[in-house]
């Protein structure tokens, strides 16, 4: 990284504005250089002859995808229903486990900052870092292919997501409202139920609906690794190069996502 060295060696750090200017420009330069270097790396692993072909390939693909095979829809309603179930039941399970974890993780509600909190935080990070598809991969090996693996994969991924956003919301509540209840002689569970729950309720509802919305999309691809839903049909259609069927699946996904987005917007609006 020659640029960084040059910047580090520059002795003109006395005049504030110049130094800051220089730092900003160096930052930009370093960023661009990094991106270019990274692109070089990717480029080395690319067969460019294929890429120059891409427009033609794309046009070819599109011509094969249309018209969609409308009649195929008949076979897709059940997988679509499965997909919705995977997302919804997975989200419900995630809420069931994520909410207690959030209260165990938040600074102002955790029973122990030293022991409980780090463990819970690790669970949250592990759950969040691993994509639902990878969870599905593991679960399909254990439980066999099917919807159950999909539901649990969605749940495992969403637990961390819900717990993280919720515990951040819990840490931001107004402590004076909580203190007032504590001063009146309320027990700890009562302080939680009366002082904290009402304050985090809107955040909780927003987070849950937001995650459900994401999960609808995620559930469409879990079938690629055998975890149920419409992705199974997608996988089968791609493997047999049945592109008109793929288009039909895409259309249904588009419709489902549009409906889910509309629904979650309505719910969010109603709550806030």
């Amino acid at each position: 990284m020659p640029i960084l060295e040059r910047a580090g060696g520059t002795p003109e750090w006395k005049r504030r504005t110049t130094a800051q200017d220089l730092m900003v420009w160096t930052g930009w330069l370093a960023g661009v250089a990094l991106a270019v270097a990274c692109f070089q790396f990717i480029s080395d692993r690319t067969i460019w002859a294929f890429v120059w072909d891409a427009p033609q390939q794309g046009a070819d693909l599109v011509s094969r995808m249309f018209p969609p095979r409308w009649s195929y829809a008949d076979q897709l309603w059940k997988p679509l229903w499965d997909t919705i179930n995977i997302a919804t039941l997975g989200t419900l399970i995630a809420i069931l486990f994520g909410v207690p974890l959030a209260f165990l993780a938040a600074h102002n509600t955790t029973p122990s900052v030293l022991f409980v909190r780090p463990v819970v935080l690790f669970i949250i990070v592990a759950s969040r870092s691993i994509n639902a598809l990878i969870w599905a991969l593991i679960l399909v090996i254990i439980l066999g292919p099917g919807v159950l693996a999909g539901i649990l994969a969605i749940a495992l991924r969403s637990i961390g997501f819900i717990a993280k956003l919720l515990y951040e919301a819990i840490e931001e509540i107004d402590p004076s409202q909580v203190e007032a209840l504590r001063a009146s002689g309320a027990s700890n569970p009562q302080v939680l139920a009366w002082g904290m729950v009402p304050q985090v309720m809107p955040a909780f509802a927003g987070i849950s609906v937001f995650r459900w919305d994401i999960n609808i999309r995620e559930a469409t691809v879990l079938g690629l690794v055998g975890a149920g839903g419409i992705g199974m049909q997608l996988e089968a259609s791609i493997n047999t190069l049945a592109w008109p069927q793929v288009t039909m699946i895409f259309i249904l996904i588009l419709g489902m996502v549009a409906v889910s987005e509309w629904l979650s917007a309505r719910v969010r609006h109603a709550i806030i």
Binding site: D174, A180, A183, S184, G185, W194, P198, Q199
Partner: peptide, 17 residues
């Protein structure tokens, strides 16, 4: 604590109740 009522400057009511 039940025998000591407290009143606060910023009221400290639970706003959403």
């Amino acid at each position: 604590r039940r025998r000591m009522g407290m009143i606060f400057q910023e009221y400290a009511l639970v706003e959403r109740l």
